[in-house]
Design a protein around this nucleic acid. Structure first.
Length: 485
RNA sequence: GGCCCCAUAGUGAAGCGGUUAACACAUCAGCCUUUCACGCUGACGACGCGGGUUCGAAUCCCGCUGGGGUCACCA
């Protein structure tokens, strides 16, 4: 189905303090759609729920999105022709349209209390009837209204919903149709004078000329009532696209209790924004056909993305694949870049205070470049560059058990090392020479050296490690080990 | 429970009436290797079930089953 032009998309999060991964994916798709069509991307804050509103929460959402490298053309932080961009600042606008519907007889006041409505619903549930508003206040005589008002009741406004079928052509799912008799007259203006989400959204989307309306699948059920509002106002509904839901491994909706759901958490775990974007893009979309490479930059996505290739089925957030993708991205950036990205994690692990010599940092990054899947793993690979590791005496003895003169051999190595030029290549040549003289096997020589220098059995290749560690530290550790044996 | 959406290997997915049903992650094996990785090669592994339609169905239709969403003066 063709996309109507001009393309103006919007992302409308409620301010929750951080960007949910679902927000992030929708924002990414919005961003791509807008850019691909030379359109506009508007950020709008849906904060009509005053009870939940938290200051700074909006900023938190933006921070997460910005970290990913996503940005928009207009929004609360980017004034433009369609402002204001917070629903809480557009209340007058909504009011006007409520009044219009009211005066046209398309909406009416409802004096039912929350308790009465809850009781009504319960009764319906018990009787296994459809759960919907009965329409009790539809034809309330004005005398009754006055009486209720005098009692102090403040009415809500409900839309008079016609009995019919409403449908729409979803850009990713095709035709979706619902019978309105199932939903009853719904509230459009709360008694507080603030419109309900569905109403505010329609007004904003229409005034901002949003097309297509893009959002997650949980909004499918909101679409029919929204279309009814468009129709009541005499407006033409936009095109809609509902993206698949992201699920936990156990197929439940992603939530805080079941692992990381916020972008900020992924940043802290050491994922690269580039990898996150790459990963999120593939959850609910695929380039289709033959793909030679799944490592895509945002520019690649700009070229390949299409609404048509979006999937309608729910997708499980597979963190293992994210890990792999993140590793791929780590390998893709330069060692220097990796170094600067690793630094905060080394600081957080308490290995580094303040700055580190950039050249040295780059060399360390190079050592772990092919070994990292996440940035936070750097500390476990590099700790011994900053801290003296304990001497693993037992492991060293085990490694040298076939050598009667293990200790003497290590002393010979120490002596030879003292004379060496501290360059990777020199060290390699020099140590091979010592190895020949000693007659030790690879494992005996290099594993014991690795144990002594790094304190463990696993490390990057030994020669570059020695070079980066420096002559002094290496000799000291060797001496320490010899006396400990 | 009503309504809506969805359904290809463990996961992400290609496929749009005729294919030996791609590819990627994960898993397993081998190679590479001075440890760990990276890399390379290979293996395992799928059309949820039942009916139609059709010469022919993963592809179209219906039912079932399963999963998800939604039924608020939340968004």
């Amino acid at each position: 189905m063709e996309l109507k032009t001009p393309v103006i998309v919007r992302m409308a999060p409620s301010p929750t303090g951080d960007a949910h991964v679902g927000h992030a994916r929708t924002t990414l798709y919005d961003y791509l759609i807008a850019k691909q069509h030379g359109g506009t991307f508007i950020m709008r804050i849906d904060d009509t729920d005053t009870k939940r509103h938290v200051e700074e929460a909006e900023e938190g959402v933006f921070r997460g999105l910005h970290w990913l490298g996503l940005d928009w053309d207009e929004g609360p932080d980017k004034p433009g022709p369609n402002g204001p961009y917070r629903q809480s600042e557009r209340l007058d606008i909504y009011r006007k349209y409520v009044d219009q519907l009211f005066s046209e007889g398309k909406a009416y006041e409802c004096f039912c209390t929350t308790e009465e409505l809850a009781a009504e619903r319960e009764a319906q549930q018990a009787a296994k009837e459809d759960i919907k508003y009965s329409g009790k206040c539809r034809c309330l005589p004005s005398a009754d209204k006055d009486r209720l008002r005098a009692e102090g009741r403040v009415p809500t406004v409900r839309l008079l919903t016609p009995d019919k079928k409403v449908g729409f052509q979803d850009l990713v799912r095709g035709w979706i149709e619902v019978d309105t008799t199932l939903m009853g007259d719904f509230v459009i203006l709360k008694s507080s004078g603030i419109p309900v989400y569905n109403f505010a959204t329609v007004i904003d989307d229409h005034m901002m000329k949003i097309n297509p309306v893009t959002r997650a699948a949980e909004h499918i059920a909101n679409t029919p009532p929204q279309i009814l509002i468009y129709e009541a106002l005499g407006w033409e509904p936009p095109q809609f696209a509902h993206f698949s839901t992201m699920l936990n491994e156990d197929r439940t909706k992603m939530s805080k209790r079941k692992g990381a759901t916020y972008i900020g958490q992924y940043a802290e775990m050491g994922y690269l924004p580039e990898a996150m974007i790459n990963f999120l893009a593939f959850l609910g979309w695929s380039p289709g056909g033959e793909v030679d490479n799944e490592i895509l930059t945002i520019d690649d996505l700009l070229e390949k993305f299409s609404l048509e290739q979006c999937t309608a089925s729910n997708a499980i957030f597979d963190i293992k694949k994210l890990d792999w993708l993140n590793g791929q991205w780590i390998r893709k950036i330069s060692a220097e870049d990796l170094g600067s990205r690793i630094l905060p994690f080394l600081q957080k692990a308490g290995l580094v205070e303040g700055d580190v010599d950039g050249h040295w940092l780059t060399k360390m990054a190079a050592l772990v470049h092919e070994r990292l899947n996440r940035l936070d793993e750097a500390s476990q690979w590099l700790h011994y560059f900053f801290q003296e590791p304990a001497v693993p005496v037992e492991e060293i003895q085990k490694t040298l058990k076939k050598q009667e003169n293990g200790k003497a051999g290590l002393e010979a190595i120490l002596n030879a090392l003292q004379e060496m030029d501290w360059q990777e290549a020199e060290l390699e040549a020099g140590l091979h020479k010592v190895q020949e003289e000693l007659g030790w096997g690879n494992k005996e020589l290099f594993m014991s050296l690795r144990l002594i220098l790094s304190g463990g059995k696993v490390s990057p290749p030994i020669f570059p490690t020695m070079e980066v560690l420096g002559k002094e530290k290496c000799l000291v550790r060797l001496e320490r080990a010899i006396s400990a044996l």
